[in-house]
Design a protein around this nucleic acid. Structure first.
Lengths: 225, 225
DNA sequence: CATCCGCTATCAATATTTTCATTGGTGTAT
DNA sequence: ATACACCAATGAAAATATTGATAGCGGATG
């Protein structure tokens, strides 16, 4: 198992290196301190299993590096490691074909879980939400009277019972602000299938567009889980 | 010798921890993941020899933490560790009484040299001119990193100040799940005008679609008013 | 037991609407 | 002068609706 880590901060590389050892004895870690080195490496070593690249590096930045890698080596998993935790960044990066968006604020064990997930072929995205701040049952134009007349937990149970498991998966990602394309990529299904689920969700929730559906889901509070 | 390191990135702490061991056997390292923990630590442990504090942390940022430490414990050496390499930052920080300005891009050995220098009572500043290759004027895209470092109410004020009154009107209705057409009708303007406002809002909030913008606005909590 | 039926999940493909980006122009305050 | 609000209009992308087809899975029926 060969993993290439790219970060301009030597000490962070060192911490990551140390953590990566826990993945197993057959893990070989290589280091790069900028994106250009990464591009050179992937030419030279064709047996890489994963590239972990910092977003913020001198010279070619990680995002440009990601785009170039996706173009030249589409099958090589590339995960972006970053100090930023903007959902917008995350979406942009996942949308560009990265296998994961890994905040530097993760603990070692969280980082390991994320990496295992990525090495399993899944896409890792952190749970940036967890805010759960503002609730109020508000009348949504066109929303049925059902939701307004139930309290939160009842409504949440109502919804969960009416939506299929797969629909719940999709709704959860909708609540992260993801586009159909990103959701499809994230859940490993075709974009068309996502659309079918979205349509079904809108119908069940009696919403006329995705934003309304997300608002309802968030206000009811069943997405925070 | 007791050293407290404060950084919200666990892996960086780990790398730094490892490096600090090389300073000698009698080095005891403590960790904090935010500035508040630092302030608590220094109250509890009065025999600290050095604090290494990241500039960019959630909650109280490193600079504020530095100022507070200089006030409460003027004799305790505090060095700032940072991902940024701006001369302006450096001057501000050294001027505020820090014992050093340590770029995260330093190698382990450079870091050790810097720390030794600081422990000797000197003030460490990097040679920024040497790393001129690294010198990129980072463009802050529109919104910038501001929101991450502010708490909700501050962020709400931030947003409100950056959006025009009419944009706020539109955003409010977006948060109700209305389509552009309905918003236009509702505010008595053309649909095209709504689109322009929406585009401007997305840009300001650094969002890639309307659902994201609504999520952000709701999470920050400024729409409830 | 086999078959039929209903539910779910998947993909493909089409058509329409909505959303988003951009450019250019007008008026209006400060 | 500069920022704001507004409109028109274009093009591209995303979202929504719909139809058709395949496949697995569980229950019901014969």
């Amino acid at each position: 198992m060969k993993i290439l880590i790219a970060d301009d901060h030597a000490l962070f590389r060192q911490g990551l290196l140390y953590t990566l050892q826990s993945l197993g004895d057959d893990v070989e870690v290589m280091e790069a301190s900028n994106a250009k080195e990464v591009l050179d490496y992937v030419e030279q070593y064709t047996d890489l299993d994963l590239v972990l690249m910092d977003l913020d590096m001198p010279g070619i930045d990680g995002y440009s590096g990601l785009l170039k890698l996706r173009e030249s080596h589409p099958e090589l998993p590339v995960a972006i490691v970053t100090a930023s935790e903007y959902e917008a960044d995350m979406l942009r990066i996942i949308d560009s074909g990265a296998s994961g968006y890994i905040p530097k604020s993760l603990t070692s064990s969280e980082m390991l879980d994320a990496l295992k997930q990525i090495l399993d072929g899944e896409i890792f995205v952190p749970d940036l939400s967890a805010t759960s701040g503002t609730f109020q049952i508000r009348q949504i134009t066109g929303s049925g009277p059902l939701l307004a007349s139930l309290d939160k937990s009842e409504a949440a149970a109502e919804i969960k019972s009416r939506l299929t498991p797969r629909q719940l998966d999709v709704l959860k990602l909708m609540c992260e602000g993801m586009s159909n394309k990103v959701i499809a990529h994230s859940l490993g299904m075709a974009e068309g299938t996502v659309k079918i689920h979205v349509t079904a969700i809108l119908k069940e929730l009696n919403a006329t567009n995705r934003t309304q559906a997300v608002i309802m889901a968030k206000e009811i509070g069943f997405i925070s889980a």
